[in-house]
Amino acid sequence: MHLFFTPDLNSETYTLNEDESKHSIRVLRLSQGDTINLVDGKGGLYTAVITDANPKKCALQIVNHVPNFGKRPFYVHIAVAPTKNLDRMEWFVEKAVEIGIDEISFLCCDHSERKNLNTERLQKIAISAMKQSIKAYLPKLNELQPFASFVNQCDASATFIAHLEDHNRKSLVQATVSQKNCILIGPEGDFSGREIEMAYKQGIKPVTLGPSRLRTETAALVACHTANLLHEIQVALP
């Protein structure tokens, strides 16, 4: 399936931008009359026919539209402190999108080694992963924000904090998940005691992701996969 990202698609005809036109005509060697698929990142999956195989402005005719393609009855949100090595965060974004994620927030914590973040490249990685895994929904990527700001405005009743302190923590597998959940993942040095107490005061519940000490990006991906699995099990139960 040849899949192209077209976020501004709003009519029965469309012209691919120059990069996508070149890729479709020069690289994939598609020609007039060939069929391709488009996704708008908002759940729309489209089938289109090439009407003008111009390598700079490939023209398309939309012939079919499937709304809410692959829509899931649950919502997974991971809030994570970016790693010092940005490659590791790029890996997490790519794999989380492939598995299934609806929103990613980036947190600046007391122990964070990365205090700034350009989400532009992460957005491109998310788009590529969406296309590769044949999804029609592009996850929302939020800009880096202070931990305190995030916990003060989140829905605490549906939010969990995964930390390493020896507190009374449930496994995320045992947690009662709701239709929309958020899991907080700390930086390499874990959340500070101050941040953990702040989360508790908001009503955020502590969880563990298992007996192993995980890297930040691994923990975030484990949380993403576990949340998906718990929801899928709930959907499958009679």
Rank of each mutant, 00 (worst) to 15 (best):
Leu3Ser: 04
Leu9Gln: 02
Asn10Ile: 11
Tyr14Lys: 04
Tyr14Val: 01
Leu16Asn: 00
Asn17Cys: 03
Glu18Thr: 09
Lys22Trp: 09
His23Val: 01
Arg26Glu: 10
Val27Lys: 08
Leu28Cys: 04
Arg29Gln: 09
Ser31Glu: 12
Gln32Trp: 00
Gln32Ile: 10
Asp34Pro: 04
Asn37Ser: 06
Leu38Met: 05
Lys42Val: 01
Leu45Asn: 02
Ile50Trp: 06
Asn54Asp: 15
Pro55Gln: 04
Pro55Glu: 11
Lys56Glu: 07
Ile62Gln: 08
Ile62Arg: 12
Pro73Thr: 10
Ala81Trp: 01
Lys84Met: 02
Trp91Pro: 03
Ala96Asn: 02
Asp102Met: 11
Ser105Glu: 00
Cys108Met: 13
Cys109His: 06
Ser112Ile: 01
Leu117Ser: 06
Thr119Met: 09
Lys124Leu: 04
Lys124Met: 02
Ile125His: 01
Ile127Asn: 02
Lys131His: 00
Ser133Leu: 10
Tyr137Thr: 00
Lys140Ala: 15
Glu143Thr: 09
Leu144Phe: 04
Pro146Trp: 05
Ala148Gly: 10
Ser149Tyr: 12
Ser149Met: 13
Val151Trp: 12
Gln153Leu: 12
Ala156Gln: 13
Phe160Glu: 07
Ala162Asn: 05
Ala162Met: 11
His163Gln: 14
His163Pro: 10
Asp166Arg: 15
Arg169Val: 13
Arg169Cys: 15
Arg169Asp: 06
Leu172Asp: 09
Val173Ser: 12
Ala175Thr: 01
Ile183Gly: 01
Gly189Thr: 03
Asp190Phe: 03
Phe191Val: 08
Gly193Asn: 15
Glu195Pro: 05
Met198Asp: 09
Met198Thr: 11
Ala199Glu: 05
Gln202Lys: 13
Gly210Asp: 09
Pro211Met: 12
Ser212Cys: 14
Thr216Tyr: 00
Thr218Tyr: 01
Ala220Asn: 05
Leu221Pro: 09
Leu221Val: 07
Ala223Trp: 03
Thr226Val: 14
Leu229Met: 15
Gln234Phe: 07
Ala236Arg: 13
Pro238Val: 10
